[in-house]
Measured scan of single mutants.
Amino acid sequence: RELEKFANEFKVRRIKLGYTQTNVGEALAAVHGSEFSQTTICRFENLQLSFKNACKLKAILSKWLEEAE
């Protein structure tokens, strides 16, 4: 439930900031050390990743959002 809420909020905030899914994937290299594909970001936003992978990505995306805003 919390993950679903974060995924929805993330998408809204990403769009408000003017980032595409591809931009986010590339920008994550600075935060995490490796890029993520547009497909991975899309699957996260649509809750199509495994729970374990989504939880890992949530932590990375939270950190990125803090820096982007």
Rank of each mutant, 00 (worst) to 15 (best):
R1K: 15
R1M: 04
E2H: 00
L3A: 12
E4K: 12
K5G: 07
K5Q: 11
K5M: 10
K5L: 10
F6Q: 01
F6D: 00
A7R: 04
A7D: 03
N8R: 15
N8G: 09
N8W: 08
E9P: 01
E9V: 05
F10M: 05
F10V: 05
K11Q: 07
K11T: 07
V12M: 13
R13W: 04
R13P: 01
R14P: 03
R14L: 04
R14T: 01
R14N: 01
K16I: 05
L17R: 02
L17S: 03
G18L: 05
Y19K: 04
T20E: 06
T20N: 08
Q21E: 06
Q21H: 11
T22A: 15
T22I: 06
T22W: 15
V24W: 09
V24I: 06
G25Q: 11
G25T: 09
E26L: 04
E26M: 07
A27R: 07
A27N: 03
A27W: 14
A27Q: 14
A27G: 03
A27I: 11
L28M: 02
L28R: 06
L28N: 02
A29P: 01
A29H: 12
A29I: 07
A29S: 12
A30Y: 05
V31N: 08
V31M: 11
V31F: 09
G33T: 01
G33Q: 10
S34Q: 14
S34L: 10
S34Y: 08
E35C: 11
F36Y: 13
F36A: 07
F36T: 06
S37M: 02
S37F: 01
T39H: 12
T39A: 13
T39E: 15
T39Y: 07
T39M: 11
T40M: 07
C42E: 15
R43F: 09
R43V: 00
F44E: 04
F44W: 01
E45R: 00
N46I: 01
N46K: 10
L47I: 02
L47T: 04
Q48K: 07
Q48G: 04
Q48F: 01
L49P: 04
L49W: 00
S50Q: 06
S50W: 12
F51G: 08
F51T: 12
F51E: 15
K52M: 07
K52C: 03
K52L: 08
N53E: 15
A54G: 09
C55S: 14
K56Q: 12
K56P: 05
L57I: 14
L57Q: 05
A59T: 14
A59H: 13
A59V: 14
I60C: 08
I60G: 07
I60K: 10
I60R: 08
L61D: 03
L61Q: 03
S62A: 13
K63P: 09
K63F: 02
W64F: 08
W64H: 06
L65C: 02
L65W: 04
E66V: 12
E66S: 09
E67L: 05
E67M: 10
E67G: 09
E69V: 01
E69F: 05
